[in-house]
C-alpha cells in the first residue's frame, strides 16, 4: 500500500500554516501525527495534493494551566498527556482515556489536535471533550475563534473547522476538585476502535450528585454529548434506578452503524453498559 504523490510543507508558525492552507485550497490537508491520515492515504481513499505538517510549529506543543482552564496544544501527543503531572492531578480522565487509544507506538505520535479535529466518530477524545465541555481554538485567515466541542461535530469527518483553519489548542475548564471520573471503553482488542465507550464526570456532595456530564464514543456518526443521561443523575444519590435511567437515556440518543464489531443493536446496548459501568466507577472515585 503506497500513498499517491503529494507536496510536503513544513511551516514553522501557525500564521504560515494558515496562509499555506488558504493558498493551496481544498487539495491541502494538515498533518499532525498522521496515524489516521497516512493509512487512509496508503489505501488511496485520501489523496491530498499537499500536506501541511504541523510538527515544526513549536507553539502548538505543551500543556499549561491558565486560570480556570487547562490549555493543551494541538500537537501534544497522547504519551505526553499520559506523562503530564498537571493532567494527572487536575484531569486524570484524560490519562485514563489516552491509555485506551491505539497502542503504545500510536500514542507516541498521535496528538490531541489530530484526534479531535479529524471528525472520526471512532476517536476517543471528542466524546471526552464534549463531556468536559472543552473549547477548540481555531486559527484561520480571519484570525482566531473558539468553538465548543459540543458544537463542533456535524457528521462523520464533517466538523466546524474550515478547510483553511488549524485547530491550535484545546481548552478545558478545570473541573471541581474531588470529582469522580471514568472512561469506559468496550473493545475487542488493543488497537481497536470502541464498540461503544462512555466518558463520565460526576460531582457528588453529601451523597447527592450535584453535576454530571456524559460523552459517548462511536455510537453515531458523531461523538455524542448525552445531556439527558447526565441529567438523570443530577439530584439523585446515583442509585441503581438513577444509573439505569442514565443508561437508558444514553442508549436512546445513539444511532450506531452495524459493522464487523457488531450489529447496531449490540452497540446501542453496549452504550448502556459502558455508561453504567463508567458511572459506577466514577461514583467510587468521587469524594462524597
Amino acid at each position: 500500500m503506497i500513498p499517491a504523490k503529494f507536496e510536503y510543507h513544513r511551516p514553522t508558525s501557525v500564521q504560515d500554516a494558515v496562509a499555506l492552507l488558504a493558498q493551496l485550497g481544498e487539495e491541502a490537508h494538515p498533518l499532525a501525527g498522521g496515524h489516521s491520515l497516512i493509512p487512509v492515504m496508503k489505501t488511496r481513499l485520501a489523496a491530498p495534493e499537499h500536506l501541511v505538517d504541523l510538527a515544526g510549529i513549536s507553539s502548538l506543543k505543551g500543556i499549561r494551566r491558565e486560570q480556570d482552564h487547562i490549555a493543551i496544544g494541538a500537537m501534544a501527543t497522547q504519551s505526553e498527556m499520559i506523562a503530564s503531572p498537571l493532567l494527572a492531578e487536575i484531569l486524570p480522565i484524560i490519562r485514563e482515556t489516552s491509555l485506551l487509544i491505539g497502542d503504545p507506538q500510536i500514542r507516541y505520535v498521535g496528538t490531541i489536535g489530530g484526534n479531535v479535529a479529524n471528525g472520526d466518530p471512532g476517536n476517543d477524545m471528542p466524546a471526552l471533550m464534549m463531556c468536559l465541555d472543552a473549547e477548540y481554538q481555531l486559527a484561520g485567515r480571519n484570525g482566531e475563534r473558539r468553538v465548543r466541542a459540543r458544537a463542533f461535530y456535524f457528521g462523520a469527518y464533517d466538523t466546524a473547522r474550515q478547510n483553511d483553519e488549524i485547530l491550535t489548542e484545546v481548552r478545558i475548564p478545570i473541573p471541581a476538585k474531588g470529582h469522580g471520573y471514568a472512561y469506559e471503553k468496550l473493545k475487542r482488542k488493543v488497537g481497536d476502535y470502541a464498540v461503544a465507550a462512555a466518558a463520565v464526570m460526576l460531582t457528588i456532595t453529601n451523597g447527592t450528585c450535584r453535576a454530571a456530564s456524559i460523552g459517548l464514543t462511536n455510537v453515531a456518526d458523531t461523538p455524542l454529548w448525552a445531556e439527558a443521561a447526565a441529567q438523570a443523575l443530577v439530584g439523585t444519590r446515583i442509585d441503581r434506578t438513577a444509573i439505569a435511567n442514565a443508561a437508558n437515556a444514553a442508549e436512546a440518543i445513539t444511532n450506531p452503524a452495524s459493522d464487523g464489531h457488531g450489529p447496531a443493536e449490540y452497540r446501542r446496548k453496549m452504550t448502556g453498559v459502558t455508561v453504567r459501568r463508567a458511572i459506577e466507577r466514577a461514583k467510587l472515585r468521587a469524594e462524597v
Binding site: 500500500m1 510536503y8 513544513r10 498533518l31 498522521g34 496515524h35 497516512i38 493509512p39 496508503k42 500536506l51 505538517d53 510538527a55 504519551s79 497502542d103 503504545p104 507506538q105 500510536i106 507516541y108 505520535v109 488497537g191
Partner: peptide
C-alpha cells in the same frame, strides 16, 4: 501496511514509532 502489527517499529527521538505510518520527510 495499516500500522497494526508493529513489525516496522524503530526508535525515533526516544519514541517507538511505526515506520510504515510515517513519511521519511517527517523524520527529517
Amino acid at each position: 501496511d495499516t500500522s497494526h502489527c508493529g513489525a516496522c517499529t524503530v526508535d525515533l527521538n526516544d519514541m517507538s514509532v511505526k515506520s510504515c505510518a510515517l513519511f521519511a520527510v517527517q523524520a527529517n
